[in-house]
Design a protein around this nucleic acid. Structure first.
Lengths: 159, 159
DNA sequence: CGGATATCAGGCGTACTGAGATTG
DNA sequence: CCAATCTCAGTAAGCCTGATATCC
Protein backbone atom coordinates (compact mmCIF):
# COMPACT_ATOMS: atom_id res chain seq x y z
CA UNK A 1 0.00 0.00 0.00
CA UNK A 2 1.30 3.21 -1.04
CA UNK A 3 1.45 5.90 1.47
CA UNK A 4 -0.73 5.03 4.34
CA UNK A 5 -2.59 7.88 6.00
CA UNK A 6 -3.57 7.12 9.53
CA UNK A 7 -3.75 3.50 8.61
CA UNK A 8 -0.38 2.31 9.63
CA UNK A 9 0.23 -0.90 11.37
CA UNK A 10 -2.96 -2.68 10.47
CA UNK A 11 -4.58 -2.35 13.82
CA UNK A 12 -5.91 -5.87 13.93
CA UNK A 13 -5.97 -6.83 17.55
CA UNK A 14 -5.21 -3.33 18.67
CA UNK A 15 -7.27 -0.94 20.70
CA UNK A 16 -7.89 2.16 18.67
CA UNK A 17 -8.34 5.63 20.12
CA UNK A 18 -11.89 6.89 19.73
CA UNK A 19 -10.52 9.83 17.76
CA UNK A 20 -9.57 7.48 14.98
CA UNK A 21 -12.22 4.81 15.27
CA UNK A 22 -14.90 7.04 13.79
CA UNK A 23 -12.68 8.91 11.36
CA UNK A 24 -13.86 8.01 7.85
CA UNK A 25 -10.41 8.45 6.36
CA UNK A 26 -8.97 6.15 8.98
CA UNK A 27 -11.65 3.51 8.42
CA UNK A 28 -11.06 3.54 4.69
CA UNK A 29 -7.31 3.45 5.02
CA UNK A 30 -7.53 0.52 7.38
CA UNK A 31 -9.79 -1.42 5.06
CA UNK A 32 -7.74 -0.45 2.04
CA UNK A 33 -4.63 -1.58 3.88
CA UNK A 34 -6.03 -4.97 4.81
CA UNK A 35 -7.59 -5.66 1.43
CA UNK A 36 -4.43 -4.44 -0.25
CA UNK A 37 -2.37 -7.03 1.56
CA UNK A 38 -4.71 -9.76 0.48
CA UNK A 39 -4.67 -8.58 -3.11
CA UNK A 40 -0.92 -8.18 -3.24
CA UNK A 41 -0.48 -11.63 -1.76
CA UNK A 42 -2.96 -13.30 -4.11
CA UNK A 43 -1.44 -11.61 -7.15
CA UNK A 44 2.02 -12.51 -5.96
CA UNK A 45 0.99 -16.16 -5.85
CA UNK A 46 -0.05 -15.76 -9.48
CA UNK A 47 3.33 -14.13 -10.23
CA UNK A 48 1.67 -10.80 -10.89
CA UNK A 49 1.36 -7.36 -9.38
CA UNK A 50 -1.38 -4.80 -9.22
CA UNK A 51 0.28 -2.76 -11.92
CA UNK A 52 0.36 -5.69 -14.24
CA UNK A 53 -3.39 -6.03 -13.86
CA UNK A 54 -3.93 -2.30 -14.17
CA UNK A 55 -1.92 -2.01 -17.35
CA UNK A 56 -3.29 -5.15 -18.98
CA UNK A 57 -6.85 -4.06 -18.18
CA UNK A 58 -6.23 -0.61 -19.64
CA UNK A 59 -4.71 -2.02 -22.80
CA UNK A 60 -7.57 -4.44 -23.35
CA UNK A 61 -10.28 -1.93 -22.60
CA UNK A 62 -8.90 1.12 -24.39
CA UNK A 63 -6.63 -0.53 -26.94
CA UNK A 64 -2.93 -0.15 -27.63
CA UNK A 65 -1.14 2.82 -26.13
CA UNK A 66 2.30 4.31 -25.64
CA UNK A 67 3.97 4.50 -22.22
CA UNK A 68 3.06 8.18 -21.96
CA UNK A 69 -0.56 7.34 -22.78
CA UNK A 70 -0.50 4.68 -20.09
CA UNK A 71 0.90 7.14 -17.61
CA UNK A 72 -1.99 9.46 -18.30
CA UNK A 73 -4.69 6.82 -18.21
CA UNK A 74 -3.43 4.85 -15.25
CA UNK A 75 -1.80 7.62 -13.25
CA UNK A 76 1.20 5.37 -12.65
CA UNK A 77 4.55 7.09 -12.82
CA UNK A 78 6.15 6.91 -16.25
CA UNK A 79 9.33 5.29 -14.95
CA UNK A 80 7.31 2.56 -13.34
CA UNK A 81 5.21 2.10 -16.47
CA UNK A 82 8.37 1.53 -18.44
CA UNK A 83 9.68 -0.97 -15.92
CA UNK A 84 6.39 -2.85 -15.77
CA UNK A 85 5.99 -2.90 -19.53
CA UNK A 86 9.47 -4.38 -19.67
CA UNK A 87 8.41 -7.18 -17.35
CA UNK A 88 5.16 -7.82 -19.19
CA UNK A 89 7.07 -7.85 -22.46
CA UNK A 90 9.51 -10.48 -21.21
CA UNK A 91 6.49 -12.59 -20.27
CA UNK A 92 5.04 -12.11 -23.76
CA UNK A 93 1.87 -10.61 -22.28
CA UNK A 94 2.34 -7.42 -24.29
CA UNK A 95 4.43 -6.50 -27.30
CA UNK A 96 6.21 -3.27 -28.08
CA UNK A 97 6.37 -1.91 -31.58
CA UNK A 98 7.79 1.43 -32.72
CA UNK A 99 5.08 3.87 -33.78
CA UNK A 100 5.14 4.43 -37.53
CA UNK A 101 4.20 8.10 -37.47
CA UNK A 102 6.19 9.35 -34.49
CA UNK A 103 9.33 7.36 -33.94
CA UNK A 104 9.77 8.69 -30.43
CA UNK A 105 6.75 6.66 -29.45
CA UNK A 106 6.48 3.01 -28.66
CA UNK A 107 3.12 1.30 -29.08
CA UNK A 108 2.30 -1.24 -26.42
CA UNK A 109 -0.21 -3.92 -27.40
CA UNK A 110 -1.72 -6.72 -25.37
CA UNK A 111 -1.13 -10.21 -26.74
CA UNK A 112 -3.55 -13.18 -26.68
CA UNK A 113 -1.50 -14.57 -23.80
CA UNK A 114 -1.95 -11.21 -22.08
CA UNK A 115 -5.72 -11.38 -22.47
CA UNK A 116 -5.73 -14.86 -21.04
CA UNK A 117 -3.61 -13.76 -18.10
CA UNK A 118 -5.95 -10.82 -17.58
CA UNK A 119 -8.95 -13.12 -17.29
CA UNK A 120 -7.11 -15.15 -14.68
CA UNK A 121 -6.34 -12.05 -12.63
CA UNK A 122 -9.94 -10.89 -13.07
CA UNK A 123 -11.07 -14.06 -11.39
CA UNK A 124 -8.67 -13.63 -8.49
CA UNK A 125 -9.87 -10.10 -7.84
CA UNK A 126 -13.51 -11.03 -8.16
CA UNK A 127 -13.12 -13.62 -5.45
CA UNK A 128 -11.32 -11.25 -3.11
CA UNK A 129 -14.04 -8.65 -3.55
CA UNK A 130 -16.74 -11.00 -2.37
CA UNK A 131 -14.65 -11.88 0.66
CA UNK A 132 -14.18 -8.22 1.44
CA UNK A 133 -17.87 -7.42 1.17
CA UNK A 134 -19.04 -10.61 2.85
CA UNK A 135 -20.61 -8.85 5.86
CA UNK A 136 -22.75 -6.59 3.68
CA UNK A 137 -26.08 -7.32 2.03
CA UNK A 138 -26.54 -6.75 -1.67
CA UNK A 139 -28.32 -3.48 -1.00
CA UNK A 140 -25.55 -2.34 1.33
CA UNK A 141 -22.89 -3.17 -1.23
CA UNK A 142 -24.60 -1.05 -3.84
CA UNK A 143 -25.02 1.72 -1.34
CA UNK A 144 -21.32 1.56 -0.43
CA UNK A 145 -20.21 1.74 -4.05
CA UNK A 146 -22.56 4.64 -4.59
CA UNK A 147 -21.20 6.63 -1.65
CA UNK A 148 -17.59 5.90 -2.52
CA UNK A 149 -18.11 6.87 -6.14
CA UNK A 150 -19.69 10.12 -5.03
CA UNK A 151 -16.71 10.98 -2.85
CA UNK A 152 -14.18 10.01 -5.49
CA UNK A 153 -15.91 12.05 -8.18
CA UNK A 154 -15.70 15.09 -5.95
CA UNK A 155 -12.04 14.47 -5.15
CA UNK A 156 -11.22 14.31 -8.83
CA UNK A 157 -12.82 17.68 -9.40
CA UNK A 158 -10.17 19.38 -7.31
CA UNK A 159 -6.52 19.44 -8.18
CA UNK B 1 2.09 6.30 -0.08
CA UNK B 2 2.01 2.98 1.73
CA UNK B 3 1.44 -0.17 -0.01
CA UNK B 4 -1.26 0.65 -2.48
CA UNK B 5 -3.61 -2.07 -3.62
CA UNK B 6 -5.08 -1.21 -6.96
CA UNK B 7 -4.94 2.39 -5.96
CA UNK B 8 -1.65 3.45 -7.35
CA UNK B 9 -1.08 6.63 -9.07
CA UNK B 10 -4.02 8.63 -7.88
CA UNK B 11 -6.06 8.49 -11.01
CA UNK B 12 -7.12 12.08 -10.95
CA UNK B 13 -7.76 13.07 -14.51
CA UNK B 14 -7.39 9.57 -15.75
CA UNK B 15 -9.82 7.34 -17.52
CA UNK B 16 -10.28 4.22 -15.49
CA UNK B 17 -11.05 0.80 -16.89
CA UNK B 18 -14.59 -0.33 -16.08
CA UNK B 19 -13.14 -3.38 -14.34
CA UNK B 20 -11.71 -1.12 -11.66
CA UNK B 21 -14.27 1.66 -11.56
CA UNK B 22 -16.82 -0.49 -9.75
CA UNK B 23 -14.38 -2.48 -7.66
CA UNK B 24 -15.00 -1.53 -4.01
CA UNK B 25 -11.41 -2.19 -2.99
CA UNK B 26 -10.20 0.02 -5.78
CA UNK B 27 -12.61 2.81 -4.87
CA UNK B 28 -11.54 2.71 -1.26
CA UNK B 29 -7.88 2.58 -2.08
CA UNK B 30 -8.23 5.53 -4.39
CA UNK B 31 -10.01 7.60 -1.80
CA UNK B 32 -7.64 6.48 0.93
CA UNK B 33 -4.75 7.43 -1.30
CA UNK B 34 -6.04 10.90 -2.09
CA UNK B 35 -7.06 11.67 1.47
CA UNK B 36 -3.78 10.25 2.68
CA UNK B 37 -1.85 12.71 0.58
CA UNK B 38 -3.86 15.58 1.94
CA UNK B 39 -3.39 14.42 5.51
CA UNK B 40 0.33 13.81 5.14
CA UNK B 41 0.75 17.21 3.53
CA UNK B 42 -1.29 19.04 6.15
CA UNK B 43 0.52 17.33 8.99
CA UNK B 44 3.85 18.02 7.34
CA UNK B 45 3.01 21.70 7.27
CA UNK B 46 2.41 21.45 11.01
CA UNK B 47 5.78 19.68 11.37
CA UNK B 48 4.07 16.43 12.32
CA UNK B 49 3.42 12.98 10.97
CA UNK B 50 0.58 10.54 11.24
CA UNK B 51 2.45 8.47 13.74
CA UNK B 52 2.93 11.47 15.97
CA UNK B 53 -0.79 11.99 16.04
CA UNK B 54 -1.49 8.31 16.54
CA UNK B 55 0.89 8.01 19.47
CA UNK B 56 -0.13 11.25 21.14
CA UNK B 57 -3.80 10.30 20.82
CA UNK B 58 -3.18 6.88 22.30
CA UNK B 59 -1.23 8.31 25.21
CA UNK B 60 -3.89 10.86 26.00
CA UNK B 61 -6.77 8.48 25.66
CA UNK B 62 -5.33 5.42 27.38
CA UNK B 63 -2.71 7.04 29.58
CA UNK B 64 1.02 6.53 29.86
CA UNK B 65 2.46 3.44 28.25
CA UNK B 66 5.74 1.76 27.42
CA UNK B 67 6.97 1.37 23.83
CA UNK B 68 5.87 -2.27 23.82
CA UNK B 69 2.43 -1.23 25.04
CA UNK B 70 2.28 1.33 22.27
CA UNK B 71 3.27 -1.27 19.72
CA UNK B 72 0.37 -3.44 20.82
CA UNK B 73 -2.21 -0.68 20.96
CA UNK B 74 -1.22 1.14 17.80
CA UNK B 75 0.02 -1.76 15.70
CA UNK B 76 3.02 0.33 14.69
CA UNK B 77 6.31 -1.53 14.55
CA UNK B 78 8.32 -1.28 17.77
CA UNK B 79 11.39 0.12 16.05
CA UNK B 80 9.30 2.89 14.58
CA UNK B 81 7.62 3.55 17.92
CA UNK B 82 11.02 4.03 19.48
CA UNK B 83 12.12 6.36 16.72
CA UNK B 84 8.94 8.41 16.89
CA UNK B 85 8.99 8.60 20.66
CA UNK B 86 12.52 9.91 20.35
CA UNK B 87 11.35 12.70 18.07
CA UNK B 88 8.37 13.55 20.27
CA UNK B 89 10.68 13.59 23.28
CA UNK B 90 13.06 16.05 21.68
CA UNK B 91 10.05 18.26 21.03
CA UNK B 92 9.02 17.96 24.68
CA UNK B 93 5.63 16.59 23.64
CA UNK B 94 6.17 13.44 25.69
CA UNK B 95 8.54 12.53 28.47
CA UNK B 96 10.25 9.24 29.15
CA UNK B 97 10.77 7.98 32.68
CA UNK B 98 12.15 4.63 33.77
CA UNK B 99 9.47 2.38 35.23
CA UNK B 100 9.95 1.97 38.99
CA UNK B 101 8.86 -1.66 39.22
CA UNK B 102 10.40 -3.08 36.05
CA UNK B 103 13.53 -1.29 35.06
CA UNK B 104 13.50 -2.76 31.57
CA UNK B 105 10.49 -0.63 30.84
CA UNK B 106 10.29 3.00 29.93
CA UNK B 107 7.11 4.86 30.68
CA UNK B 108 6.10 7.33 28.02
CA UNK B 109 3.84 10.15 29.20
CA UNK B 110 2.23 12.96 27.26
CA UNK B 111 3.16 16.45 28.44
CA UNK B 112 0.90 19.52 28.58
CA UNK B 113 2.65 20.73 25.42
CA UNK B 114 1.84 17.36 23.89
CA UNK B 115 -1.84 17.72 24.70
CA UNK B 116 -1.86 21.16 23.19
CA UNK B 117 -0.19 19.86 20.06
CA UNK B 118 -2.69 17.02 19.92
CA UNK B 119 -5.59 19.46 19.94
CA UNK B 120 -3.99 21.34 17.07
CA UNK B 121 -3.62 18.15 15.04
CA UNK B 122 -7.19 17.19 15.95
CA UNK B 123 -8.36 20.37 14.37
CA UNK B 124 -6.39 19.78 11.20
CA UNK B 125 -7.85 16.31 10.79
CA UNK B 126 -11.35 17.45 11.58
CA UNK B 127 -11.14 20.00 8.79
CA UNK B 128 -9.83 17.47 6.28
CA UNK B 129 -12.61 15.05 7.14
CA UNK B 130 -15.30 17.56 6.32
CA UNK B 131 -13.59 18.30 3.03
CA UNK B 132 -13.47 14.62 2.24
CA UNK B 133 -17.13 14.05 3.05
CA UNK B 134 -18.34 17.30 1.54
CA UNK B 135 -20.40 15.64 -1.21
CA UNK B 136 -22.34 13.52 1.28
CA UNK B 137 -25.34 14.44 3.39
CA UNK B 138 -25.30 13.88 7.14
CA UNK B 139 -27.32 10.72 6.75
CA UNK B 140 -25.01 9.43 4.05
CA UNK B 141 -21.97 10.10 6.20
CA UNK B 142 -23.40 8.07 9.05
CA UNK B 143 -24.33 5.33 6.64
CA UNK B 144 -20.81 5.27 5.21
CA UNK B 145 -19.20 5.03 8.63
CA UNK B 146 -21.62 2.26 9.52
CA UNK B 147 -20.81 0.21 6.43
CA UNK B 148 -17.07 0.71 6.78
CA UNK B 149 -17.15 -0.23 10.44
CA UNK B 150 -19.04 -3.37 9.58
CA UNK B 151 -16.46 -4.40 7.01
CA UNK B 152 -13.54 -3.60 9.27
CA UNK B 153 -15.00 -5.54 12.17
CA UNK B 154 -15.27 -8.56 9.94
CA UNK B 155 -11.73 -8.16 8.65
CA UNK B 156 -10.41 -8.05 12.18
CA UNK B 157 -12.13 -11.30 13.01
CA UNK B 158 -9.91 -13.19 10.60
CA UNK B 159 -6.18 -13.41 11.05
C1' DC C 1 19.43 -19.98 31.80
C1' DG C 2 15.19 -18.34 29.01
C1' DG C 3 12.09 -14.49 28.13
C1' DA C 4 10.99 -9.64 27.71
C1' DT C 5 12.18 -4.82 26.84
C1' DA C 6 14.31 -0.95 24.50
C1' DT C 7 17.34 0.73 21.17
C1' DC C 8 19.78 1.05 16.89
C1' DA C 9 21.30 -0.28 12.19
C1' DG C 10 20.17 -1.82 7.90
C1' DG C 11 17.31 -4.13 4.15
C1' DC C 12 13.57 -4.08 0.88
C1' DG C 13 9.90 -2.74 -2.09
C1' DT C 14 7.42 1.29 -3.57
C1' DA C 15 6.75 6.22 -5.24
C1' DC C 16 8.93 9.69 -7.21
C1' DT C 17 12.81 12.83 -9.35
C1' DG C 18 16.26 13.77 -12.46
C1' DA C 19 19.59 13.08 -16.24
C1' DG C 20 20.40 11.06 -20.84
C1' DA C 21 19.47 10.11 -25.48
C1' DT C 22 16.42 10.33 -29.44
C1' DT C 23 13.00 12.30 -32.31
C1' DG C 24 9.59 15.98 -33.81
C1' DC D 1 16.55 25.64 -30.26
C1' DC D 2 12.68 23.93 -27.73
C1' DA D 3 9.26 20.29 -26.64
C1' DA D 4 8.01 15.50 -26.23
C1' DT D 5 9.11 10.62 -25.53
C1' DC D 6 11.45 6.83 -23.52
C1' DT D 7 14.76 4.87 -20.58
C1' DC D 8 17.52 4.23 -16.57
C1' DA D 9 19.86 5.68 -12.28
C1' DG D 10 19.25 7.38 -7.96
C1' DT D 11 16.63 9.50 -3.98
C1' DA D 12 13.05 9.44 -0.08
C1' DA D 13 10.03 7.64 3.14
C1' DG D 14 7.61 3.56 5.00
C1' DC D 15 7.57 -1.08 6.72
C1' DC D 16 9.97 -4.69 8.49
C1' DT D 17 14.02 -7.80 10.31
C1' DG D 18 17.87 -8.51 12.91
C1' DA D 19 21.53 -7.66 16.42
C1' DT D 20 22.71 -5.85 20.88
C1' DA D 21 22.32 -4.57 25.69
C1' DT D 22 19.81 -4.63 29.74
C1' DC D 23 16.87 -6.43 33.01
C1' DC D 24 13.33 -9.91 35.08
Amino acid sequence: MPTNALGMGTTVNAVTPARLRNLPSWLMTQIASVSSRRIVEALHNADARERHYFILATLEEFGSASPVDLERTTGINLSDIVATVGILGRKKLIKRTPAPLDRRRTVVTITPAGRQRLRLLDEILRRLQSELLAPLSTGERDQLVRLLTKILACQNDRS
